[in-house]
């Protein structure tokens, strides 16, 4: 029996989003969507978090930050890419400063489509991520080695 499913704490980082998905992630925490019903708390602190929610595409300066945040999170952890920019780079894919989706830097577990992703879609995505989190927790419990920290190729 794992408690990860009942108490997932998330950390939100705006990689280079237009704020649209950002404010929808925040809206999930507020009365109308209230994800605290599932025990989800926005910790704002990588050391407390289980789920890394990233909005927006990755560019050169944020890449380091994302890696830093991800590596500071203790295991087990999952990554949810919210919005099309976080998934593929979206409409900004072609610009000179965008490297692409979050998966160019980190292993992404769940992609949430939408521009901007709706709070309902984000809730669905996080709920889906919980299953993955639990599998990872079970693997760790069974004695699997901790996955190595993700290194950025400079």
């Amino acid at each position: 029996m794992s408690f990860f499913k009942k108490s997932p704490w998330l950390l939100h980082y705006d990689a280079s989003s237009c704020n649209g998905c950002d404010i929808e992630v925040l809206a999930c925490l507020t009365p109308v969507y209230d994800v605290e019903r599932f025990g989800i708390v926005n910790t704002g602190n990588p050391k407390h978090a289980d789920i890394l929610v990233i909005t927006g595409s990755v560019n050169e300066p944020t890449r380091e930050v994302i890696l830093n945040l991800y590596n500071q999170m203790p295991h087990p952890k999952v990554v949810v890419a919210v919005g099309v920019c976080a998934a593929t780079g979206g409409i900004f894919r072609d610009t000179y400063n965008v490297l692409g989706g979050v998966d160019t830097v980190l292993p992404v577990d769940v992609y949430v489509p939408g521009c901007a992703a709706r709070p309902e879609a984000i809730i669905d995505g996080v709920v889906k991520a919980l299953g993955i989190l639990e599998t990872k927790a079970a693997a760790l419990k069974a004695g699997a080695a901790e996955p190595a920290a993700v290194e950025g190729s400079k």
Partner: peptide, 10 residues
């Protein structure tokens, strides 16, 4: 739940 989870977490 929170505390039990934290005990499970690295």
């Amino acid at each position: 739940y929170d505390v039990f989870k934290l005990f499970e977490k690295r």
